[in-house]
Computed example of a mutant assay.
Amino acid sequence: MDDDIFDRIANLEDELEDIGYIEGLEAGKIIGRIEGREMGCDNGLSIGRDLGFYQGWVQQWLRTAAVRPGLVPERVLKKLTALQSAIDEVPMANGEGADFGARLKAIQLKFKTASAMLGINAAAELPTSTLSY
């Protein structure tokens, strides 16, 4: 009987550690989900704001080119169309292979190239984003 009590005391630490691990894992899942949702909302807002800027910018240049033929050179129109395509390809949901960082860097590079070809200072046009693509 004494051996049984001492065995129970000796195993108590392991039992409590296992219980604590399971409880901590469950609490971590809940907290992680909340933090992930908050971070997703913050980053999603910044990404959406930047995409909206690029979308509006390229659409305005494409409309201007349609209304005033010859104002925008053909090679610039190709860059603007490529920029529009890159924007259109950004998924509106976060899933496997979304890689928003790489997509936004590519869009930003196309924007800077098109701006330079139009003789516009891209730094003055860029949105003030907190994200670093």
Rank of each mutant, 00 (worst) to 15 (best):
S46G: 08
D88K: 12
E35L: 09
G20H: 11
I34C: 06
P91R: 08
A93I: 14
G24T: 11
A93D: 14
K110G: 05
I22K: 14
T113I: 15
W57V: 01
A102W: 08
A66V: 02
D18P: 00
C41P: 00
M92Q: 14
Y54L: 05
D42Y: 15
I107P: 02
S85H: 05
G44Q: 06
G70Y: 04
V58Y: 02
W61T: 02
F100R: 06
Q84E: 13
A102I: 09
E74H: 01
L83R: 01
G56N: 07
S46F: 15
L71F: 12
G56K: 02
E38G: 01
A82I: 01
N94Q: 13
L109A: 15
A93W: 12
L45T: 13
D50V: 15
A27N: 10
G28I: 14
G56C: 05
T113A: 13
T81M: 04
R33I: 05
F100M: 14
A106E: 06
Q59S: 08
L62A: 06
G48Q: 04
F53W: 07
E15D: 14
Q108H: 13
L80I: 03
I30F: 15
L62K: 03
E89N: 13
I19F: 13
P73S: 12
L104H: 06
L71W: 04
G48F: 08
D99H: 15
R103G: 04
G101H: 11
S115P: 03
L12H: 10
K78G: 07
I22P: 01
Q59P: 00
Y54D: 02
A93T: 15
I22N: 11
G36T: 06
I107G: 02
M39P: 00
L25M: 14
